[in-house]
Structure formats: structure tokens, C-alpha cells
Design a binder for these strands. Structure first.
Lengths: 171, 171
DNA sequence: ACAAACACTGGACAATGTGCTCAGCAGTGG
DNA sequence: CCACTGCTGAGCACATTGTCCAGTGTTTGT
């Protein structure tokens, strides 16, 4: 179960070194996720054990968190995305978090600088349904005010490859 | 290469039906992404061919876009995340998109309603480095103004499971 | 400069999983 | 009543995985 040569299991956030082979491996995995270790080793021109060791290390490192399926909310019936900026009462942070966590349509939540606010990503079945979601989100005592921006287009979907290429020196 | 029994290849966004078995499959894949078709069929208590057919269909549907590696920017050396709201000159949308697409630190870009015209997610190596990224982002003719919110905490990381459970009737 | 540690190679093995196909059976709808 | 669709259980040839191992450069510490 333990990795082949992996020996470090650093807590994330430390900025692990990622060399050029790591970068090529990640990019390859991102482009063809169903590829196996053996095929990856052929594509990269290295031995299979090397790829296995690198993948073990990248996962122990936390560089690769996992390989979760990338589910499209629109295809599930939630084609409307919005971002809501929330202003909350002092000292209510924990309660608000718990409340928002319990709402399935809240896909993501951040606390930000600014006014000591929160930013969350919402989805809904329609614009009308978005009203219901927002009502549910803001219908909670600790939330003072909310402003919502509905997403029209998504010219750059969440991506990581360019950053990986830059971080690993792949030009 | 074509799926076993899959016959529909609908364009995404239509709100595909997702039944309870689909839901359980997606949740299982999300929790243990490395499991194969055979193991999944054992966990779900159905035949292997069924799981294969469901996965083919979910991918043809666009419900599952892929299985890309989930890379942590922090582990790559970019621990700072921020959201920038951009106001752009009329008619410059396409140019601004192209410009932002060329910046690796721009992980995501949306056009939104409201008067902030675009919302983008940025990462940087440090708070100081964030200044460089922002300068690069806004150093473009079509961008009139930008306001940035730095992420402090991320109480709810991007998630999809609760929505899948709701959409598929898994309570 | 030398030994130890490290990373990668290339090869081997059994066990397991995959892609593919088939026949049978149940529910649905024309 | 028949055609169609989806699920099952089974089987087969083949590919991949997990795991070892010995050998070879390259760093690293002292």
C-alpha cells in the first residue's frame, strides 16, 4: 500500500518542488485521465516504476489530491451558476459556515478580505430557482446582506495545466 | 471505443436524468476515484456490464466530464488565492478574455451580471506576488477597474456530492 | 575522495482487471 | 404479441497492476 520510493508526506501548502517530469506527468494525466501507469510510462519515455514512484510522491505530497470525477452541474439539472458575496455579523462565522455547508447548492465557500465577508458559489435549476436558493442561503440570522452575480459565460473553466507548466518549468 | 449500450450523446446543459444508481455510482467514484469498474460493481451490488454502461452513458451525457487529477495550487507553490471583479470597456470582451486566458495564474474566468463584468479566480506565490499577478491581469487596455478579495479560508472546498445526492434522490 | 543514500532502468512473476461477446430474462410500449 | 431496452451472469484473450530484484549513474555528507 505504501509507495515505492516515496518517503515524504508533507502537509500541503508548503510549495513542493515539482520538476519537469512531474509537470509532464500531471499534464498528461489531465489530458487523458483514464490512462494507466504503464501507458503513461510509455508516453513519457521512462520506466514504469518511475511513473509509479512519481505518482505516489505527488499524492503523498498533496500536489495531486485525487482523481474525483468532474461532474457538470448543468448536466445534473443545475444550469445556473452564481456567486454571492455575503456580509455577516461578527462572531457568527462558524454558524454561517455550518449553515452554508448544509445547502447542497452551495458548491464552494470562501472567507475573504474586504469587509470580513464570504464569497460562495451557487447553482440552481433556473433563474427562478436561484431565488429559492438565495433565500435559503441568506435566510439565516448571522447574514446581514448578500449581493449576487449571475454567471453568464465561463470563458475559462477551472484549469490548472498552465500553472503546472509554469511551476515545473515546461516553458 | 463506443459505449456498450450508450446511445445518446446529448449536448450538455439539458439536465439529464440521473437515477439513484447513477447517483450512488458518482458518489462512489468521488469517494474512491481509483476503483475500477469491477470493484465498483461489487460495491454497488450490480453486474459489471451495468456499471460499464452507466459510466459510458454518464460520460456521453456530459454528466461526468472526466477524471482529471485534482491538483492543489498551494502544493505547487501558489498558496494565495484571490477573486478579482473586473470592469471592462464595452466591446473589449473578447480581447480581455484572450488576455486573461494567457495568464497562467488565472484559474477561472466568468462573465457575470451586475456591473462588475467579469469575475476571475487568481492564485499567487505570496501576497507580494499577488500584486504582480494583479498588475499583469489589469495591465490591459480593455480593463477599466478591478477589485480584489483575497481568500483567507476555504470552509467549503469545491464539492459536488451533496448536489448529486439531491439530484438523484439519495436524500 | 569514499561510502551511503537516492533515483531510475529493465526485467520478471502471479494475480487481477479490462474489453468484448453472448444468451437469457423482465418490463415497456406500440 | 412482438420489438426494444436494460440488467444479469458467464466466459475468453489480453493487458495492466502490484511487487519484487539486480544493476547503474548521481548526489550528499564528512
Amino acid at each position: 500500500m505504501a509507495g515505492h520510493f516515496a518517503q515524504d508526506h508533507n502537509p500541503p501548502g508548503a510549495g513542493m518542488a515539482v520538476d519537469e517530469l512531474d509537470g509532464r506527468l500531471i499534464v498528461l494525466l489531465a489530458r487523458e485521465p483514464r490512462i494507466g501507469v504503464l501507458e503513461a510510462s510509455r508516453r513519457l519515455g521512462v520506466a514504469r516504476g518511475t511513473v509509479q514512484a512519481r505518482m505516489d510522491r505527488l499524492q503523498s505530497n498533496g500536489v495531486i489530491r485525487g482523481f474525483g470525477p468532474d461532474v457538470d452541474p448543468a448536466a445534473l439539472g443545475y444550469p445556473v451558476t452564481a456567486f454571492a458575496t455575503l456580509e455577516i455579523k461578527q462572531g457568527q462565522g462558524a454558524d454561517v459556515r455550518a449553515h452554508l455547508t448544509s445547502v447542497p447548492e452551495v458548491l464552494e465557500l470562501h472567507t475573504t478580505t474586504g469587509h470580513g465577508d464570504m464569497l460562495c458559489r451557487l447553482v440552481a435549476r433556473s433563474n427562478a430557482d436561484l431565488q429559492r436558493v438565495i433565500d435559503r442561503v441568506v435566510g439565516f440570522d448571522g447574514i446581514v446582506r448578500a449581493s449576487t452575480a449571475i454567471v453568464m459565460e465561463n470563458p475559462v473553466p477551472l484549469r490548472i495545466i498552465p500553472l503546472v507548466e509554469q511551476a515545473s518549468g515546461l516553458t
